[in-house]
């Protein structure tokens, strides 16, 4: 076989492999969507109908709203907390820097189910005022802060220090330099963290499951879970399950359209 043919074959096989795996990844979402919108008539023919979405209860949409508010607050807290920390970790040399980084990474090494229970216990015993909506916000903020931290670290590392130095030499103080030069330049990188946290917190399930009992707050994924257990695979459950997935997908696609994959690489992407 000629070298050229060999190369073409290997490239074709490579694409086929990626497409195969990506199909598997897309399988659950596509099937859920299929169940939600494809209706089989009594005569056996199939049509597309969005009727299932009208059968979703009012209560579910309320929970979506609760979810969205929790996610937005989580994002706000995480950005406010993680961006300064990432800035310090990248820009300044100090003792115990590695240790601090590991400390802030701790969440990553503890399975969510254990962490969820630990949080519930602490809410019962120490942070009684957090039993409720804010309990979710605090739990998600702590659990997802790492993502904001990692993406911000990548963004600050990729920023050539020459721009900040130029600003200082042109007469801008530390704060002015940060707000006028640093922040606008790392903005898209920090947005990557925002998108990840938004998507993960909108769909978080296991921590929510543990928190929902004591806090008496139910989020949309929990509603989906209990509907699956009680109503099974009815079209309206499938419709519920697609709502936040499609919202998340829209967020990701919009982000990628504006900024590409550049700022996600090295944080959660290769």
């Amino acid at each position: 076989m000629s070298r050229r043919m060999h190369e073409r074959l290997s490239s074709t096989l490579s694409y086929l492999y990626l497409i195969l795996i990506c199909t598997a990844i897309l399988l659950p979402l596509s099937i859920t969507l299929y169940r939600a919108v494809v209706v089989t008539r009594p005569d056996g023919s199939m049509t597309i109908s969005f009727q299932s979405y009208t059968m979703i209860s009012e209560a579910f949409w309320d929970k979506v709203l609760v979810n969205v508010s929790i996610s937005l607050l989580t994002v706000a807290i995480d950005v406010a907390v993680a961006v300064p920390a990432a800035y310090a970790l990248v820009k300044y040399e100090f003792k115990a820097k590695r240790l601090l980084f590991t400390y802030l990474n701790g969440v990553w090494y503890v399975p969510g189910i254990s962490y969820g229970l630990a949080l519930v216990l602490s809410y019962y015993f120490v942070y009684k005022f957090l039993l409720g909506f804010w309990g979710f916000v605090v739990a998600y903020s702590t659990g997802f802060m790492l993502l904001a931290l990692l993406t911000a670290i990548v963004a600050f590392r990729n920023l050539d220090p020459v721009y900040e130095e130029a600003a200082r030499c042109l007469g801008a103080g530390r704060l002015k330099t940060f707000f006028k030069v640093t922040l606008p330049l790392v903005g898209p990188g920090i947005t990557a963290g925002v998108v990840l946290i938004l998507v993960l917190s909108l769909n978080e399930f296991i921590t929510a499951l543990l928190l929902s009992g004591p806090t008496r707050v139910k989020t949309a994924p929990l509603q989906v879970f209990s509907d699956i257990r009680h109503a099974g695979i009815q079209p309206f459950v499938a419709a519920e399950a697609t709502v936040l997935q499609l919202v998340s997908l829209a967020i990701v696609v919009l982000y990628l359209k504006f900024f590409g994959t550049k700022y996600l690489r090295g944080a959660i992407m290769i």
């Binding site: 020459v162 130095e165 130029a166 200082r168 030499c169 042109l170 007469g171």
Partner: peptide, 14 residues
Amino acid sequence: PDKRNIGFVFQRVA
């Protein structure tokens, strides 16, 4: 640097 009133031109485009 911002209090020195200098003009610094860098090697890389800044």
